[in-house]
Amino acid sequence: MLITNHVMSGAVVGALAPGPVSAFVLGVASHFTLDTVPHWGDEATFLQVAVVDGLVGLAAMGTIAATTPPDRRARVLAGMLGACAPDTDKPSEVFFGRSPFPEALDAWHKRIQRESPRRMPQEVVVATLGALLVRRLVRG
């Protein structure tokens, strides 16, 4: 699943959560839930797509945080951070040669994913629907 879609789901989770701690925990849970859904994945182009997606996801996170009303901002931001946290293994492996997580967690995380190089259109649809839902729930 593209990180931008995890950002969107984390914002939705944060908007619905009662507080920042629960938003973060539920954001992490949403990450693994979304990763079980069949989604795009292609080892040949992963790094190229990941860089662009990471920048788009970061821009989305900043935009969502900046436009969220102050009374909801902490929990929305916590939801987004929680939803993205499990994928910090990927840049960590690129830059530091290892994941920050235990091997068993990384192996399980890889095992639950059902990826296909033909599912990019699905990712775009999920991102679009996510953005619409974020606008409705987060910004009110």
Rank of each mutant, 00 (worst) to 15 (best):
M1D: 00
L2T: 08
I3V: 15
N5V: 07
H6W: 01
A11R: 03
V12F: 01
A15I: 05
L16Q: 14
A17W: 03
S22W: 14
A23N: 13
F24Q: 13
F24I: 13
V25L: 11
V25Q: 02
L26I: 07
L26E: 07
G27M: 01
G27K: 05
F32P: 06
L34I: 10
D35A: 11
T36Q: 13
V37D: 12
G41D: 08
E43G: 15
F46C: 05
F46H: 09
L47G: 12
V49K: 14
V51K: 13
V51E: 03
V52M: 14
V52S: 05
G54N: 06
L55N: 07
L55Y: 01
V56K: 05
A60P: 09
T63Y: 11
I64H: 04
A66W: 12
P69L: 06
P69G: 11
P69I: 09
P70H: 08
P70C: 01
D71C: 09
D71V: 13
D71Y: 11
R72N: 08
V76T: 00
V76N: 14
G79T: 09
M80D: 04
M80L: 08
L81K: 05
A83C: 03
C84R: 00
P86R: 02
T88K: 02
E93D: 11
E93M: 11
V94K: 12
V94A: 07
V94L: 15
F95G: 06
F96G: 02
F96A: 15
G97Y: 04
R98A: 12
S99P: 12
S99Q: 00
P100Q: 08
F101P: 04
F101Q: 05
P102N: 13
A104L: 12
L105T: 08
D106A: 10
A107N: 08
W108R: 14
W108F: 11
K110T: 04
Q113T: 10
E115M: 09
E115W: 05
P117S: 12
R119Q: 07
M120E: 07
V125S: 05
V126G: 01
T128W: 05
G130Y: 04
G130S: 00
A131I: 08
A131T: 10
V134A: 02
V134M: 07
